[in-house]
Amino acid sequence: MTTSPDTFADPARPAAFVNGEPYPLDGPVPVTDLVARLVPEVVVDGVPRGVAVAVDDAVVPRGAWDRTEIRPGMRVEVVTAVQGG
């Protein structure tokens, strides 16, 4: 049995906080890659749809996802539209 790196929370490993939970990182990860790992089903023809990302309380525009790297200690919110209101 293998342990998914997404769910394995070893306090000794460096981690960012993605949607409130520790997300272990071996090195910096561009936002684009994080989204593709987290919710692969929203990426259609290489373009993510209906998803937005904030890092440390600031929205990262989609055009900046490739050059914005997630590093240990950063707080990341990845959100989408759901039923409500």
């Binding site: 919710v39 929203v42 759901v82």
Partner: peptide, 27 residues
């Protein structure tokens, strides 16, 4: 109207907060 919520993590499966893709309110 739609609300904005955190996406579900893959390990949590479909029971997570937000469905995406064709099965979503967005689609």
């Amino acid at each position: 109207t739609v609300a904005m919520r955190r996406v579900a993590r893959p390990a949590l499966g479909a029971a997570g907060a937000a469905a995406t893709g064709d099965t979503s309110i967005w689609g």
